[in-house]
Design a protein around this nucleic acid. Structure first.
Length: 109
DNA sequence: TGCTTGACCGACG
DNA sequence: ACGTCGGCCAAGC
């Protein structure tokens, strides 16, 4: 398991409730610019016990990346709404809900 | 081995 | 508001 995943997970863990971050945003913050897919992989391989707020990660369009109608997709939408994130149709207004981080290079673990 | 597949993104027409 | 393309690269087969 690449230790790159640990750095991605560390960033995801900091996303506060009621805010969202994009795959690319997270990858860059973790030190992997131009590798948004790494974020997707890291989430897909994340052990459950980490209990990451994976539902706060959406694509650059403000949409849920999981397949429409999938269980996980519906759960993601439900969890976000429960945190007060509003949807306009299928999308979230990133200008409003995007998480703004303070330091570009986060601490590892 | 090599080829295909992704929880992606930005640029361009 | 599309659709396409190239960049990216770990996993899986």
């Amino acid at each position: 398991m690449p230790e790159a995943y640990a750095r991605i997970w560390a960033v995801v863990r900091r996303i506060p409730p009621g805010r969202v971050a994009t795959y690319g945003q997270i990858a860059s913050a973790a030190g992997f610019p131009k590798r948004p897919r790494l974020t997707g992989q890291a989430l897909a391989h994340a052990p459950d016990h980490l209990d990451l707020p994976w539902h706060r990660v959406v694509n650059a369009q403000g949409r849920i990346a999981l397949p429409d109608g999938s269980d996980a997709g519906r759960q993601q939408r439900r969890r976000l709404q429960a945190e007060g994130v509003q949807f306009e149709g299928p999308r979230i207004d990133l200008a409003r809900y995007r998480w703004q981080m303070r330091s570009p290079a986060p601490v590892i673990d």
